[in-house]
Design a protein around this nucleic acid. Structure first.
Lengths: 349, 349
DNA sequence: TTGTAAGCGTTATCAC
DNA sequence: GTGATAACGCTTACAA
C-alpha cells in the first residue's frame, strides 16, 4: 500500500533503498551510478512522485512566481498588457499571480508591501496613483519591481512609460487638421496618474493649437462608459454650443460618448468627431470604428516583462533602474472620418 | 545596523531577548505576558519584520493560492469568469494564479498534473477538451478541483455547467419566430467541448423546428472573428442562397460575421439576422448590437469560486462532488431586430 | 558514488 | 508563560 499523503523524497528513498541525497541527485541530474538512477526513477514513477514546490522554494528562496497588479483586470488596457506578459513569464518558467486591486490606492500599497512575504520573485505594477506611501514602499522593497506608468523622480524602480502628452497632441493636431475648432474633453479622475497627465496635456495642447475650449466642454468622471455618456449629456444640455470634436481619455469613455451622441441624433463624425485613447480591441469593434491614440499597451506589457525577467536572470546584479519609453501612435478610423490609418508622429509638421 | 537579508523570527527573538517560540506566539495572538508582547512587537516593528509565506506554507501545507486555468484569457468569456472569481478569492484570503494554456490540450493536462507540486490549494479549470488523460488526472489529483464545462460521467470533480443545447434551441426558436427559415451556422472546432455541444444542438434543433439548413450553410473554424468573416464569405460565394439567419457559436465569431456582411452590403437584420453566444461585453458594443445567448459566464465563475472555497473551508470533509447548472438566457438586441430584451425560456411554447 | 546532517523560516509540542 | 526542539520537504556541504 502507498503511504498516506503524497510521496516525498523520503518515501522514494525508502522504496528505492537509497538515501534521500541520492534521490535528490537523481532528480536534479547530478552524477550517480546507473543502478541507483534506475532504482530511484523506478520508485518515483511507481509512486507518482511530484516534487513539492513549496519546500523547494523555502530552500532556494525562489518561488518562480511573478505578481502582476492592476486596478481592474476588466479594463481592456490592462488585459492587453496581461496578454503579452503571461506567455513571456510562462516561457521563462514563472507562474503569474494576478492582483486586481480596485480603485483604492491603499490596496496598491498593500500589494507592494505584501511582496515582503516573498510569495513572488518580482512584481509588475500599474499604479493608478503614486503617493508618498508608494514611493516609500518602492524604496523599501527588496524584490525587483517594474512600474508601468510615469514615476516621479528617477531611480525608484525599473519603469515603462509612454508619452501620453504627445499622444494627446497628436489627437488634437489631427482634429485641427480636419477643421474642427471647438474641442471637448471627457476625462477620468484628474488625481490619477493617467488622468492628470491627460488633463494637463489637453490644456497645453489646445492652447498651442489655437483651439477653442468652452467652459462647459470639459467633463471629469471615471474611466468608464457611463462617464462618456454623462459628459455628452452635460455638454449637449449646457448653454455653450456643442463641441464639433471630442477627445476622450480612454476608449471606454469614448464608447459611452458614441452611445449618447447617437441617442441625441448627432452624427459621428458629421456633427462631432470622436477620439479615444488606448486603442483597445473595442475601438475596432465599435460603430463607427473609433479613432484612438494607441499608447502601446501590449508593447508596454512586453517591455515590463522583459525588464523584470532580465533582472531576475542576471544574478541580482543590481544595476541602475532602467526606463523604457513607448511612443504613442494615432490610429485613425471612421469616428473622425479620417483616411490615414496610422500617424506615428514622424510626418512633417 | 540591520542584519543581512530580511528579518526572521530568529532575528526578532534576538532583538527582543526572547525565544523564537515567544515571537511566534505574539505574532499569532497566543497568550503571552504583556511585557513579552511589547518587546516582540517593538522589535518586529523596528526591524520591519514580515512573515515568510513560503515557510508558513511548508509548515501548514496551505499556500493560500488558487489556480484558475483557461485556454485564452483574452477571450471575453473567460475574462467574465475571472472578474467574478478574483474578488471572491481575495475576500477569502487567497491569491489567484492565472494559467492561460493556449489551444494545446496537453497544457491543460499539465496544469492538472502541476497541482501535485502543491503550489496552490485548489484549481478552477475550464477545459476546452476533456480527454482520457484529463479524466485520469482528475481522478488522481489530491487538491480540490472545480471544472467549468460539461464533464463525462459523474463524480469526477465539482462541476459547473450550462445547458448550451437549450441555449441553441432558444436562439433557433427566436429566429423561427421572426420568420427566418434558412439558417446558417458558424462554429468553432467541433472536437472541443463547447464546439461539439453546439454543433450537435444545432443539428437537432433545426430538425425539430423544421428549419432548412443548406449544405453550404455550415462553417467550422476557430472561436475567433476571422472565422466569422470567413464563414460569411464562403456562404456568400457558394452556390446555395445566402441564409436569412446566422447562428454563431460565440460572440467573436458573430462580430467577424457582422463585419463581412457589412462589407458585402448585406443589411443586418434586414437581409440576415445574426445571433451570437456568450453575451459578452462586445455584444452590447457592436453595431448593430448583437442578440446573444447568455451562458451565464459571470454566474458560472461565481459558482465555481463558491464551490471551491466551500471545499477548502469545510475541513476537507470529502463529500460527494456537486454539480451546478446555470440556465442560458436569450438577450435580444438589434441584430435580430427583436424587441424583447430577455427570454429566459419560461414563456409558453 | 553515496550517506549523514545542517539549514531554509515557520508552527506546535513538549517540559519546565 | 516561556524556552528548547522537532518537524514540514528539499538541497547541499562534508565525510566516508
Amino acid at each position: 500500500m502507498a503511504a498516506r499523503g503524497s510521496p516525498t523524497i523520503t518515501t522514494i528513498a525508502e522504496a528505492a533503498g537509497v538515501s534521500i541525497a541520492s534521490v535528490s541527485r537523481v532528480l536534479n541530474g547530478l552524477p550517480v551510478r546507473a543502478e541507483t538512477e534506475r532504482r530511484v526513477l523506478d520508485a518515483a514513477g511507481r509512486l507518482g512522485y511530484v516534487p513539492n514546490s513549496v519546500a523547494r522554494s523555502l530552500r532556494s528562496a525562489r518561488t518562480h512566481q511573478i505578481a502582476f497588479a492592476v486596478e481592474d483586470i476588466g479594463n481592456p488596457v490592462y488585459l492587453a498588457m496581461l496578454r503579452e506578459i503571461q506567455p513571456l513569464l510562462k516561457a521563462a518558467g514563472y507562474r503569474l499571480v494576478l492582483h486586481s486591486t480596485g480603485a483604492d490606492t491603499a490596496e496598491e500599497v498593500e500589494v507592494l508591501r505584501g511582496l515582503g512575504q516573498r510569495y513572488a520573485d518580482g512584481l509588475i505594477i500599474v499604479p493608478i496613483r503614486v503617493t508618498d506611501e508608494h514611493v516609500a514602499e518602492l524604496r523599501a522593497v527588496e524584490a525587483p519591481v517594474v512600474v508601468i506608468g510615469s514615476l516621479p523622480g528617477d531611480g525608484l524602480a525599473d519603469n515603462v512609460r509612454t508619452d501620453s502628452r504627445r499622444g494627446v497632441d497628436m489627437a488634437l493636431r489631427h482634429l485641427a487638421e480636419l477643421g474642427r475648432r471647438r474641442i471637448g474633453f471627457i476625462n477620468g479622475p484628474a488625481d490619477t496618474v493617467p488622468g492628470g497627465a491627460r488633463s494637463e496635456a489637453f490644456r497645453a495642447g489646445t492652447a498651442r493649437a489655437g483651439l477653442t475650449v468652452e467652459d462647459g466642454a470639459l467633463h471629469e468622471g471615471r474611466f468608464d462608459r457611463e462617464t462618456g455618456a454623462e459628459g455628452v449629456r452635460r455638454m449637449a444640455e449646457g448653454p455653450a454650443p456643442m463641441p464639433d470634436a471630442l477627445l476622450c481619455a480612454n476608449d471606454l469613455i469614448a464608447l459611452g460618448a458614441l452611445d449618447a451622441l447617437r441617442a441625441r441624433g448627432l452624427d459621428v463624425p458629421g456633427d462631432v468627431a470622436v477620439v479615444g485613447m488606448d486603442d483597445t480591441d473595442l475601438a475596432a469593434v465599435s460603430w463607427p470604428p473609433l479613432t484612438s491614440v494607441s499608447l502601446g499597451s501590449a508593447e508596454r506589457g512586453r517591455h515590463a516583462a522583459r525588464l523584470l525577467l532580465d533582472r531576475l536572470d542576471s544574478g541580482a546584479a543590481p544595476s541602475a533602474p532602467r526606463v523604457v519609453t513607448v511612443e504613442p501612435r494615432l490610429v485613425v478610423r471612421a469616428s473622425t472620418g479620417g483616411a490615414r490609418v496610422v500617424d506615428n508622429g514622424s510626418a512633417a509638421g
